[in-house]
Nucleic acid binder design. Structure first.
Lengths: 103, 103
DNA sequence: CGGAATCCAAGAAGATACTG
DNA sequence: CAGTATCTTCTTGGATTCCG
């Protein structure tokens, strides 16, 4: 599992950053996440969650209940990653503002 | 131009991180970059470079010569971005190693 | 409810040819 | 040499259905 993959498969795909943010805010269950993301389909949400688990950005807990309940939360790595994403966002905003001033 | 785009359009696309790295190392001309990236097509390379310029990660200089010569280099923002990418890489490696130890 | 399988539409990437 | 346009191929996302 190379790190380039981390960018292509986890950060670069549609919904991924938004999804990480919701989970970071405490939205833990797939149903809630599907509503929170607004226009994501259940299928794509599943795929994304699965991938976030693979890359250890998110941890999954399944409760053996009827009906089934599942919860996702950020790993320590996931939390750091999200912080870095925010850092990039700020950097990007600053750079854009500067550039606009120059035009 | 939102920041989510930055991830989806610049970091998440194939070749992008590798391309930024080569430019950061001083490989400046399209022809060289095409050879350095090994299996990227000229068309896709063009598209990527264009996008990196749009997002102000890279700056383009065209010399009015025959035959034409063009050079690309990282902006200040691009350099910072690449540093952060490296940071994520290290973090990811560390997290993976830890996880392997636990299995 | 959570998730996997299927089928279909949309977008990204590869190959090639052409212009300045 | 650098860059655009076109055509084809493949990967990704969306809608639906079914199972535990």
């Amino acid at each position: 599992m190379e790190t380039t993959d981390l960018f292509e498969k986890c950060l670069g795909c549609r919904y991924m950053v938004a999804l990480m943010r919701r989970i970071g805010e405490g939205t833990a269950r797939p149903g809630q996440l599907e509503r929170a993301l607004e226009d994501i389909s259940a299928k794509v949400l599943s795929e994304r969650l699965k991938r976030l688990v693979e890359y250890r950005i998110v941890e999954k807990t399944a409760f053996p209940e009827i009906p089934p309940r599942v919860e996702y939360r950020l790993t320590t790595f996931g939390q750091r990653l999200l912080e870095i994403v925010d850092e990039v966002e700020q950097l990007h905003n600053k750079a854009s503002k500067q550039a606009d001033g120059l035009l």
